[in-house]
Design a protein around this nucleic acid. Sequence first.
DNA 1: TCATGTCACTAGAACGATCTAGAAGCGTGA
DNA 2: TCACGCTTCTAGATCGTTCTAGTGACATGA
Lengths: 332, 332
Amino acid sequence: MTEQQRRPTLMDVAQAAGVSRALVSIVMRGAPGAAEATRQKVLDAARELGYRPDSRARLLRSTRTKLLGLSFSTGHAFHAEIVDAAYAEASAKGYELALGGVTSGRPETQTIEALLDFGSEALILISPTLSSDELARYAGQVPVVSLLRNDVGELTDSVSSDDYEGIRMAVEHLVSLGHRRIVHVDGGTAVSAEPRRSAFRAEMGRRGLEPAIIAGGAMEEDGMTAGKSLGPDMPTAVIAFNDRSALGLIESLRAQGLKVPADVSVLGYDDSQFARLSYVQLSSISQDAPLLAAAAVDRAVARIEGTQPPGHVVRTPHLVARRTTAAPAAGG
Amino acid sequence: MTEQQRRPTLMDVAQAAGVSRALVSIVMRGAPGAAEATRQKVLDAARELGYRPDSRARLLRSTRTKLLGLSFSTGHAFHAEIVDAAYAEASAKGYELALGGVTSGRPETQTIEALLDFGSEALILISPTLSSDELARYAGQVPVVSLLRNDVGELTDSVSSDDYEGIRMAVEHLVSLGHRRIVHVDGGTAVSAEPRRSAFRAEMGRRGLEPAIIAGGAMEEDGMTAGKSLGPDMPTAVIAFNDRSALGLIESLRAQGLKVPADVSVLGYDDSQFARLSYVQLSSISQDAPLLAAAAVDRAVARIEGTQPPGHVVRTPHLVARRTTAAPAAGG
DNA sequence: TCATGTCACTAGAACGATCTAGAAGCGTGA
DNA sequence: TCACGCTTCTAGATCGTTCTAGTGACATGA
């Protein structure tokens, strides 16, 4: 049943239309240099045969691939949002996206190699875990844009959100509501956990408050665990490393019979889809995935097409106040 | 800074090693036909120059690409789990994976075209929404495997989980716990919502029970809404369309002051990562993503390498009983 | 000694597109 | 009439591989 017939080539179309291969190439590319009548004739023949240009051959000849490689972690919902936005921005700029998934069994380097093999003209890496040196090695081959992480050395571009400013806003928000005893459940070894930790320390210190930090992580489980250890000395507000941790934290507080935000305010980070769920309504710091993604794509395209040196773009996050933060109880 | 020097080719390596291009090609492919000493000499030269085979040229010449196209929906965590497993299975079979994301702004056809342009030798589509006819058109070009959906016509392969059996197990589980008043919150227009609906009707009917069905969907919000409409005539158990819906449902029940599973048992579907979260512990029907993914990859590879006709693989799901299902209260 | 086979290697033609250089057709002005 | 420029079209080289068909060297067996 499956007709495994050879797929038509430029040559076939050329013969069908009675012109040369070169002219068919011109028409298919939409390049100038073909009379309108011939153009139509060729297009008709191509449609008739079901011709589809062979990108391998095309790309081999014309060093341009118009392809951006994007690596992301499967399982990070926040990354998925970035992928969405990146698709839109890339296609608006006339580029296609090659996706590479990083999973537990598939290290980042392997994903990057695959993206390069596809012919990516630039790489956009979401929260890369490679060292600056390793990144620099790739950056010698193609422009590399690190997304959500900015300590990547001079040869790699970066587009990130201002972690300090995000935490400052978080502290500011809670303090202005009247909170004084605020705890930060950190991100452990996750990318950008450290800058947030130190930002928290600095901003609390600046206000003369005690910067209590508890070990956490990037997942619900981490928030759960942190929530339990909070027990004896319960603060009036908690800033979680991210939304997923915040969700686990809230769950743990509930289990302890505490109400959010009546007894404890909880602030997330990322403003992910979880935060927006109607039954969660998590107050969160938004890094604005679509904007970041667009900026990263723009940066990659600029590097490909221009001769600009690598640069570091930092965007300011913003606070999205929902239902999990409020003024502390009178006795707090 | 960025040295934009031409990347080395087979020719460069050949000259450096003092042999012919063909021999370098043989060595790089690990093909037989080269003396060990020469092999080493060539490999050294290649390493020295930082040679990396140009996949475009390679693929152009050897019609084989060893590439499987996989389309998935960003935002579906369950799909991400499949992607993970597919990567592992594909690489075990010596294939690379090309990922294509389907988003709201990027229809399935566009994703498929992109995957074909990359040179995919077969397509694996997770829950495709195209009609059988449209799928058949693509199936004329390359083998197409539909994952999680099996009503795809004769020309398209499919790997799916037995929805009837899944629902049967769900009903069986709840009935054996002592439940009689069971409601199914369905998946609305989602893929495989219909087979689950009718399976529920049949299995309840077979037991002489009333098959109550409430309109739902695939997201938390849908479960929330359904949960509210349950109000006046609360059943003792609910089978949700999937885990996300189940989560919303549980949240809605909680808001109504009901305890799960003491007052109402809730059963999910997919056994996704959400179900496994320690604070959720959702009982669920597992479709076993890794197994399904592996089966789909196997099927695709078999179709590529053999001459088998399209086929439909159906796997049996299994029940994972956790903490959200229990015997109904005495008065129930 | 000579056909035969095996092994290591090579020259040159593919693959299917794009690109360069140039040819053909046609109108225009000197 | 001829040179010139413009538009439209074509032949052939080219991209970096793999594949086909072979070549030469050497060993083997009759």
